[in-house]
Amino acid sequence: MNIKLKIWRQKNAKAKGKFVNYSLDNVSPEMSFLEMLDALNNKLIIEGDEPVAFEHDCREGICGCCSLYINGTPHGPGEKTTTCELHMRSFKDGQTIVVEPWRSKAFPVMKDLIVDRNAFDKIIAAGGFISIDAGSSQDSNAVLVRKEKADEAFISASCIGCGACVAACKNASAMLFVSAKVSQFALLPQGKVEAVERVQAMVAKMDELGFGNCTNTYACEAVCPKGISVTNIARMNREFLYAKIS
């Protein structure tokens, strides 16, 4: 395959960025999208150019590092995939692929396609944890949890915090991420103890960091690589309302 790339290049957080066009020949359809970018960077290094900076780590859809907005979709085409799980066979020979960083006031661009997602860590630090003494390992039947609740909590906890929800939302809202993190605790007995304080602290931090408001467009759910549902947002709305009136 021969492909054309239009990639956002930005020297640093303060510099003004711009799109730069590249073409890459002999791309294998079996290559992952990140391997294709590796090939491009090899070419750029050989030619004496600065390689494109992009974030990656596990390359198996677990870490949530890869964060590219590809042809108008976070993580590119395909359902429930991260950028690292995207393969070049999803594109056509000769196609132009536009690659942009996540765009959000709360996720400033640091360099090229890398954004600072520290805002998510700040939200977690505001309340996304359990601080009560839950004790040492107990007999598995000592604390009873309904199977459905345990499954829901597990699915909510599978959010990898990649930020695709923020990237896809027309309002750059972080509600899907925050609601998943609120839910994974709120659904379980150990998390319920601090649920009232947790949801208020995390929502307050989310607002403070400049994320937009949810207008229920559900674009977040459509692009989430882990299939986190907007029912988490409804749960967070309930949790917050309960916290405010209790």
Partner: peptide
Amino acid sequence: IRNWMARPIRYAKANNSQGSFFSK
């Protein structure tokens, strides 16, 4: 207004994510 401010730099390629159409 807050939502517009949350994304000061827009995408070059319009977002084509699926979602509720009228909500946009």
